[in-house]
Design a protein around this nucleic acid. Sequence first.
DNA 1: AGATGACCATGACAAAAGTCATCGCGAACC
DNA 2: GGTTCGCGATGACTTTTGTCATGGTCATCT
Lengths: 197, 197
Amino acid sequence: MLAEDQRMVRGALAALLGLEDDLEVVGEASGGAEAVAVAARTRPDVALLDIEMPGGDGLAVAPELRAAAPDCKIMILTTFGRPGYLRRAMEAGAAAFLVKDGPAQELAAAIRRVVAGERVIDPALAAAALSAGPNPLSPRERDVLDAGADGSTIADIADRLHLSEGTVRNYLSSAINKVGARNRIEAVHTARAQGWL
Amino acid sequence: MLAEDQRMVRGALAALLGLEDDLEVVGEASGGAEAVAVAARTRPDVALLDIEMPGGDGLAVAPELRAAAPDCKIMILTTFGRPGYLRRAMEAGAAAFLVKDGPAQELAAAIRRVVAGERVIDPALAAAALSAGPNPLSPRERDVLDAGADGSTIADIADRLHLSEGTVRNYLSSAINKVGARNRIEAVHTARAQGWL
DNA sequence: AGATGACCATGACAAAAGTCATCGCGAACC
DNA sequence: GGTTCGCGATGACTTTTGTCATGGTCATCT
């Protein structure tokens, strides 16, 4: 099964896999929630999930998908090889983590290896994820940083999260400090780059 | 010819086009500069360019490509259907503007229409581009806004652009005002969403 | 020849953002 | 039972942003 929001890319990936005669695409989905429903219905051997999708990203729905279709292997396919993504993917029980930058043949090869029971992870990425360490941000710090990512003012964030302005300032300050940034914007950038948001 | 930086997507698109027996992929490139070189060598009828690429984006290299291979029709294929992108694509002489969200069959169909001499643009997108109006930012305002997008401080920007801090502040302020934002971050967001950056 | 507008710069001021010390509460852990 | 840590809050303080008025140069357009 294929879950990817960009239809043209999804169609192209389907075409790519269609060239392999031991592989068949039995279902397609354009979002996280839909992926779970489709998997429950079509019972695929393997689910290929994109991360950047509307309606619940691939990492968030992985647990639900495991519940809905326990025998289905989960493979994460993403544009960005962020250490934090890989970590979360592994914690969610994914069998593979691929980046779209990789060679096209790698996809079919990885699927076969996953079906055979192997786990497939780019060694360089694995090393980066390990050396980067875990997410240093507390849940609340993440919330606040994320809420401020779009240019919202402190008052906006406080309002949206039902916190006092001072509290928001403190969380923001400690988040900035923890990621080693000089201000909110830098903090959001580096946190995103690490896959911490 | 196919220019797209993500190899897996590029391979998948090639597979998709390979299914059509009146179409053939004669060259592939992973960046803007490479696209020009490949086009000069392989002389394709049509060049399919992604926008979000390293080494000069599709819009920037379109003029060079026209110079290098005058008979080659240029098609822009992008993730984001931003009004400003469409406008720039048209000004660069592109024959088509497609978004990756569209249906997969649309790609081959669009290529055939372009070869037949037609121009292919999503009507909804064209309307949005026209109603949004042209880029309100002056070149310098764009520079400053862009330089500050990564969280650089005013002093950083002033330094990088060889301007006084006050000047940077003024440009930033007028840019914020022009796009109707409340601060730098919001300004960058909306400017990006419109394709003005 | 005069208007317009992009460009660069100051200085002054108000409004945010960020830092720091300090406090209380509750849960987890040794 | 004490320590630690995440959570939420205050108040005071400094720095950074953003706004505004103003002024000058240069190129373009009418």
